[in-house]
Amino acid sequence: MSESAVAAPVARDFRVQRWSWVSVLFAGGLAGIVTVLAFGPVLLGENTQNNLIQLYFLMIMAMMWNALAGYGGLVSVGQQGFIGLGAYAAVFFSVQHGLNPYMSMLLGTLVAGAVAIPIAAVVLWLRNGAFAIATWVVAEVFSILVSLDPNPAIGGGTGTSALLPFNLRYDPTHRLHYTYWAALGAVAVFLLLLFVLLRSRLGGSLQAIRDDEEAAASVGVRVLLGKGVLFVVAGMGCAAAGTVILAWQLSVLPIGPDSIFGINWTARMIFMVLVGGIGTFEGPIIGAVVLYVLQTYVSISGIWYFVMLGGIAIGFALLLPRGIWGTIQERFNVQLLPVGYRLRTGDGR
């Protein structure tokens, strides 16, 4: 009796599965949702569009921070540096050089990606806490350099406005529509980019790096390359989120915890990723929705809001380290977007 219990599973044939019917259904559903949301400006009121823009940039930030921490094992405390860099680069192109503001947003994102490359070469040698500090210092340097810039369109601690380039070309209604599309488009592009990246060879090597860097290096995984690609993509994603914030609120501040270079963005990112589920593809999206619901429907003053954010993040890190989605995934073995592999036995179990 005990013999059959041991022998039976071995006799079955195994197959490695990426897509399951659940994930096919979900990926199709997601594409459908994005398509429906693309009609937002036609179907939804201005308030809802404004709210969804917030949800979109929060989603991008959460995905990017999760890509670094959950897949690369890199806890960054300085992604706000790229958020601010993207926003200010967009100001530079649109206010300073009179380019189309939405084109400027795209250029700002690319500039931040280019800046991320040399920075990656410096900070990626560091591990854990030292990496966290170095990214924070880099963000501070960006913030100081921007506030000291002698150019009147950029510099000054009192912030800058991109009202003019937007309003010269678009009336408020159209501006809202285009900003909405830009934000949704950015979500879709970075979601797809991460999905492709994590399913590629690089995704496998990244997870090997996260689990054991030395072991990964010893079997020939190119550790720095993998981390570097993640760092640059995360920098671009955060910059894209920053340009959306600029287009949404039209003015930004360079200095202070609540500014575009503020540490509060990192607080939000950590909250979203820990609550949703660190190291899962779907988790940050759920975390972003949770944060969005909290800040939209729970009226709570700014100070208590961040006390709550920090407290809940600590609670999740200690008590539910896999977050909402990680816990669900563990219990039911589902994966809505297939970035990993699953081992299935022949009888479907």
Binding site: P257, I263, N264, A267, I303, F306, V307, L309, I314, A317
Partner: peptide
């Protein structure tokens, strides 16, 4: 990585309190 996350949470809580 978790000590970084929890102590960062503490930083945010203390600053705002």
């Amino acid at each position: 990585l978790v000590p970084l996350l929890t102590t960062f949470g503490l930083l945010i809580v203390i600053a705002n309190l």
